[in-house]
């Protein structure tokens, strides 16, 4: 019984971690169609932002709150540079984008290794997030509750921005029909850069939060990249709510499979489910209707 309650929460928690890692990608990949293999390294940059902030500030709690917005700016700035230097030249060539951003990811990993060293560094968890909360007889780590809350906040903010702000409307307009949007006076260049900035910034935020439960090392981003792509593809390209449902579903599948087998077998199980699902529904859970002809 204890284990069951624990596992239900674990599914939700794993889902929220996947969602946080995938949210930025659902903008850059889902909305813009850019396969950014360096997304994981932006998450890693967020992790190191949390580390550096903690070294400078000292107090773990204060530095976490500072690191969240700083992580957004660091990730966003890196995304902006990547978009401007490379990605914008490759917009019609998705496979080339994949190879190029993969290379950028490797370069960023090596940079992190040279600057911070290859072994993981320690980001101290703030006192108020240590230990667990008793939930129906199971200890639920506070760090996981924090990440769950952060994921909810991040998704809500992104959804509100896309729906109600002028910038959000422009993003949706360009995704819906680029040519028509340009005719209406929207600079699709600026919108692309802006979308990439926000998407990469969210990766940075994810990185800061993930230091609470995971390691901070040059290869950290790799642990989340594939799962993040899975969430976006299974959820349906360009749909935030698709990413939410897919992340929670995948998290729960993983947690349930894992209860009855080993973690690495559970991973295989999740992949099988996704492969079968995409056979039946290649467009993912939710589809985006666009007015473009392509």
């Amino acid at each position: 019984m204890d284990l069951l309650v624990g596992q239900l929460f674990t599914g939700l928690s794993t889902g929220s971690i996947l969602l946080l890692a995938a949210l930025g990608l659902s903008l850059t990949f889902g909305q813009m169609g850019v396969i950014n293999m360096a997304h994981g390294e932006f998450i890693m940059a967020g992790c190191y932002t949390a580390y550096v902030t903690q070294q400078v500030v000292g107090d773990a709690g204060v530095s976490l709150l500072i690191a969240l917005p700083v992580g957004f700016l660091v990730g966003g700035a890196m995304g902006l540079v990547l978009e401007w230097l490379l990605v914008r030249h490759l917009y019609q060539r998705p496979l080339d984008t994949l190879l190029v951003t993969f290379g950028v990811g490797l370069v960023l990993q090596q940079v992190a290794r040279d600057v911070f060293g290859a072994p993981a560094v320690n980001v101290t968890v703030p006192e108020f997030l240590r230990g667990g909360v008793d939930l129906l007889g199971t200890a639920v780590p506070k760090t996981r509750l924090f990440i769950l809350a952060l994921a909810v906040v991040a998704v809500t903010v992104v959804a509100l921005v896309l729906r109600f702000t002028a910038a959000g409307r422009r993003i949706r307009a360009v995704v819906g029909n680029r040519d028509l949007a340009e005719t209406a006076g929207i600079s699709s260049r600026a919108v692309d850069a802006g979308t990439f900035f926000i998407g990469s910034g969210l990766a940075g935020v994810a990185g800061v939060a993930l230091t609470l439960i995971g390691s901070t090392s040059p290869t950290t981003g790799q642990s989340y990249l594939v799962d993040a792509f899975l969430v976006v593809v299974a959820g349906g390209m360009g749909r935030i709510k698709g990413a939410v449902v897919a992340a929670v579903a995948l998290g729960t599948f993983q947690a349930v499979f894992e209860t009855y087998s080993t973690a690495s077998l559970a991973k295989v199980g999740v992949f099988v489910v996704i492969v079968v699902f995409l056979q039946l529904r290649p467009q993912g859970l939710f589809t985006l209707r666009t007015r473009s002809l392509a």
């Binding site: 390691s215 090392s217 642990s223 973690a263 690495s264």
Partner: peptide
Amino acid sequence: AQLGSVEFSTIVNQVSASGADAVFNTLNGD
């Protein structure tokens, strides 16, 4: 767990529920 895996919630829940006297850990890296 897969090499490099960082999701240990389920495993730790199971370890905790198992009531084992000790854990033998051969995990690697991150």
